[in-house]
Nucleic acid binder design. Sequence first.
DNA 1: AATGAATGAGAGTTCATTCAT
DNA 2: CATGAATGAACTCTCATTCAT
Lengths: 211, 211, 211, 211
Amino acid sequence: MPDPPRRGRPPDEKLAAERRRALIEAAYAVFAEKGYIAAGIADIDERLDVGRGTFYRHFQSKREILDHVVDHALERFLAAIAAEAPPGEAGTFDEFAGQMRRISDRVFAIAAAEPGLMRLLIFEATSIDDALTERLLELLDTMTATVAAYLDHGVRAGYLRADLDTHVVADALNYVLMPAVMQMLRGTFGPDDRERYQHGVMALVGDGIRR
Amino acid sequence: MPDPPRRGRPPDEKLAAERRRALIEAAYAVFAEKGYIAAGIADIDERLDVGRGTFYRHFQSKREILDHVVDHALERFLAAIAAEAPPGEAGTFDEFAGQMRRISDRVFAIAAAEPGLMRLLIFEATSIDDALTERLLELLDTMTATVAAYLDHGVRAGYLRADLDTHVVADALNYVLMPAVMQMLRGTFGPDDRERYQHGVMALVGDGIRR
Amino acid sequence: MPDPPRRGRPPDEKLAAERRRALIEAAYAVFAEKGYIAAGIADIDERLDVGRGTFYRHFQSKREILDHVVDHALERFLAAIAAEAPPGEAGTFDEFAGQMRRISDRVFAIAAAEPGLMRLLIFEATSIDDALTERLLELLDTMTATVAAYLDHGVRAGYLRADLDTHVVADALNYVLMPAVMQMLRGTFGPDDRERYQHGVMALVGDGIRR
Amino acid sequence: MPDPPRRGRPPDEKLAAERRRALIEAAYAVFAEKGYIAAGIADIDERLDVGRGTFYRHFQSKREILDHVVDHALERFLAAIAAEAPPGEAGTFDEFAGQMRRISDRVFAIAAAEPGLMRLLIFEATSIDDALTERLLELLDTMTATVAAYLDHGVRAGYLRADLDTHVVADALNYVLMPAVMQMLRGTFGPDDRERYQHGVMALVGDGIRR
DNA sequence: AATGAATGAGAGTTCATTCAT
DNA sequence: CATGAATGAACTCTCATTCAT
C-alpha cells in the first residue's frame, strides 16, 4: 500500500523555497540600498508586503539571512572566475592576457550591475562579524590563488618572467580592480573608463611580467 | 554698535577649544577601537571622564564628531604624502622610485599603527553616509592626483614612458597598497611581508613604466 | 422537524473525540515538561505530528486545553483518594492509620511519577488565572473534606479524640505532604526519605489525635 | 587644597537610590498583581510615570529586579524569624509554644499584608529560573533549620520527646502554615480562622512532641 | 558651563491565533 | 477536515539626545 494520502494542504515546498528566495532577494536589495546595519527586518517585510513574523518562519535571525545574501554573492564571483578556461589552455602571452581580460570583464560586470552588493561585501562585512570578515577574506584568497595558478602556468610555459613572485603579483592584480570598483560605486565610471582602465593596467603590468 | 561688554567671567574660548580637541581625540580612539556604529557617545564621555551632556555642548550629534575625526585622519594621510619632496626634485628613475617608496612607507606606518582607523575609513565610512563616502573618495582622488603629478613629472623629465596613462597608473598604484593593508587588518602581515610586497610591486611595475 | 439527513461521510465523532484525547495527553506531557507558560502550541502539535491549525479545530485557545489537562490531573488525585475503603471500614486506630498511609502512598506515587505535573498544579496554576487557582483550591478543599470525613468517623467510632477540630487537622495533614513533594521536585528525596517522613509525621500526629 | 568643587549637577546618590527603591517597589507591586511573567517592564514604568528607558538605568534586566524584589521579601521572612528570642530562652514547653506562636504570627502577618508577594515567592519562583528556585528552597531550608534548632533545644532541655526526628518535624511545622497561606490568597481567611488554625495545629502537634 | 538622570523611538525577536488552500 | 504559512501585537532591551539642576 502506498503512503496514505496526507490530509490537508500539502507542505508545498516550492512555495517555501520561493518565499525564501524572495526574502533573500528582498534582503539583498535592502542591504545593498541601506547597508546591513541600517536596514531593518521591517524593511524586508514591507518590501514583500508580508507580516513581521514571516521573516522568522524562514530565517532564524537578521544575521542568518546575511549569510545567504553573501553566499549568493560569493557564488557569483566564484562562477565569474571558474567560467574561464583553465590555465593550461593558454600557450602564449596573448592568450593569457585574454584570460585575464575576460575574468576582469566578468567581475566588472557584477560590480556594474550591483554596486550595492559590492559595497556590502567589500566595505561593510568587516564591521559586522569576524566570521563574515573571514569569509570575505577567504574569497579574496581564492581569487588570489586562482590568478596565481594562471601566473604559475605562464612561468612554466615560458611566456612569463621566471623570477615573478606570483603570489604577490596575483594579490596586486586582484586589488588593482578596486579603484574601478570604487569609482563604479560613485557612479562615475562608464564603459569607456573601464576600457581605458583595463588597457592601462595591462600596458603597465604587461611589460612587468612578460618574459 | 559693538557687542555690549559681557558681564562676569568671559567664556573661556581656549578651554572650550581644548575640550573639543580632547573629545575629538577620544572619539578617534573609540571609533578606531570599536567602529563608529558599535561605539557609543557614552564610551567617549567615559574616556574623558566627563558627563553625558558635555559632548552635546560641543558637537551636535554623533555624526558630526565623526566628520572631525575623519578630518584628523585625512590630514595625516595628506601629510604623509606632502612630507615627500615635490616631484621636481627627482631627476632620475631611481630617485623617483625612492620617493614612491617613502610615500608608501609612511602610509604603511599609519596603517600599522592604527589599524582601527584604517578599518573605519576604508570599510565603515561607506556604511554610514553618502557624504562621508564622498569625502573618502575625494581623499583617494587627492592621493591619485598627487601620485599622478609625480608620474607626469617623470614623463616630462624623460625617465618614464611617454605613453603612460598617468591617471590610471596612479590609481592602480594607490590601490595596490590595499592587499597589504587588508592583510594587516587580519594581523597576518609582518615587516618582512611588507618588504617583500613593496619589492614585488616595484619589480612588477618598474619595467612597465620606465622608459 | 428533525435534522435533515446529512449528505456524504458523517463527521466521525469518534475520531474527533480521539483527537481531543490525544491532544490533551500531549498537552499534559508538554506542560509537565516545560511548564504551561514556556510551552508552545507548536510543541503539542509536533508531539502528535499534526499541523498547527489542528489544535484550534478542537480547542479554542491554549488556555482552554489547560483546563482539560487539569481535569485529567485532578481526576487522578481524586481517584487516589477514592480508591481507599470508605471511612466506615476502619474500626480501630491502626486501621485508620493504614488508610491514611495508603492514601499518602498513592499521592506520593503520583508525585514521584509526574513531578512536572505537580509543579504545574502546585506552583504554576496560580500564575495563570484566578479561575484556575480557584479550581486547584477546590481540589484541596475536596481532599480536606475527604480526610475530615475519615477523622469524623474516627471521632464517632471513638478511636480519635472527641475534641478534634477535624477540618483544621485535615487541612494540616494534607499540607504536611508538601515538604516531601517539594523535595521530590528538587530530586533530593528517595524512597528511604519518604519512609522516614511518613513515619515521622505519623509518630508526631498520632498521639495528637488518638484518644 | 580640598577637592576642587565638582562642576555641574551633583550625582545625587540619594535620588538614584530613591529611584531604585521606587522601581523595586513598583516592580514588587506589578509582579504581585500580574505575576512576574505576565508583567511587563512597561507596567513598572507606567506605574511611576517614567519613560521606558529609565528602568534600564537602574537595573540590567527584568530578571535582575526580580532578585531585588525577592531579596526584599526574603529579608522580611528572615527578620520575622530572627525577631524571636533564641531557643535558649525557653525553659518550659509553654514558653516554647509561645515562641512558635509568635514566629507563626509574624509569618501570617506578612502573608496577610502581601498575598501577591507570597504567590510570587511560593508559586511562581519555580517557573522562572533554577537559580531563583534554589534561593527559595534555601529560605525554606533556613526556616526548617531555625525551627529545628528550637526543637533540639527543647529536647535537650527535657520538655520535648527525646525521640523526635527534629528535622522532619520542623519541615512539617513549616509547611503546615501553607494551607492558611493558600486560603489567605483566596481571601477566605480572616483573623478568626487564623486563630482557630493556630490553635488547632498546636493542640494536634503539642501532644505529639511534648514529653 | 557641566552634569547625568531621564527619555522614547525603534531595534530584533516570539508566539498564540487565523485562514486560504 | 487538516494543514502550515502568515500574521501582528507585544515583548525586552539599547542608545542618541534632551534638559532641570
